[in-house]
């Protein structure tokens, strides 16, 4: 992994250079989840690694990716080599890129059918746990906790209004730091 790659402008080398860069990125992300340093991770961690690489496959595509990575002998563990092979292809072909952030604002507006500019807690829970790829109780809880920072201070404590315009900034803030 420590092999040095010097960028060269001409075609084939450049492609190799890009692949090398992608693989370094994958190695770092993988290593963070490889707690006992055995060049393997728990299969349960794979969705998190993939999401953390700024990729948003559907749940079905996620399953396909994991199936592709699985090793016959032990399906609880994903090995580094398999992970990198599958994910290099994903990154090289720029698959599963998230939609841009304007769309997420629009999406939030769409769900605000009465154009109120805010959601109640119940609105949010209903939207996130009954449609699409529902959040489970734990995820929902975390989401509400994050949202609690974006409550209209003038709204009543028992019926807080979540100002989603500001919540978007929270969801996208991670990107601006990189």
């Amino acid at each position: 992994m420590t092999k040095e790659t010097t960028p060269k402008p001409d075609g084939k080398d450049e492609a190799e250079h890009i692949v090398a860069q992608i693989q370094k990125k994958l190695t770092d992300a993988f290593d963070v989840f490889d707690g006992d340093k055995t060049r393997s991770v728990d299969v349960k961690e794979v969705p998190t690694i993939i999401h953390s690489l700024n990729l948003v496959p559907t749940q079905g595509e996620m399953r396909d990716l994991i199936t592709e990575m699985e090793d016959g002998d032990n399906s609880d563990i994903i090995k580094y080599e398999k992970f990198t092979a599958v994910m290099t292809d994903v990154l090289v072909n720029k698959k599963f890129k998230p939609a841009n952030e304007n769309k997420i604002y629009k999406a939030l507006q769409v769900l605000d059918t009465e154009n109120k500019g805010y959601y109640t807690k119940e609105d949010l829970i209903r939207m996130m746990t009954t449609e699409g790829e529902p959040l489970n109780a734990e995820e929902m809880n975390e989401m509400l906790q994050t949202c609690s920072a974006f409550i209209d201070p003038e709204s009543a404590a028992e019926n807080p209004k979540i100002l989603y315009k500001y919540y978007i900034n929270e969801l996208v803030v991670e990107d601006t730091k990189d």
Partner: peptide
Amino acid sequence: ALKSALLIQRWYRRYQSRIEMRKL
């Protein structure tokens, strides 16, 4: 509405995963 929900859910999971990555 369905698509909007899906979009938000995915963004949210991505956001959580990135925090998870930072924590780890």
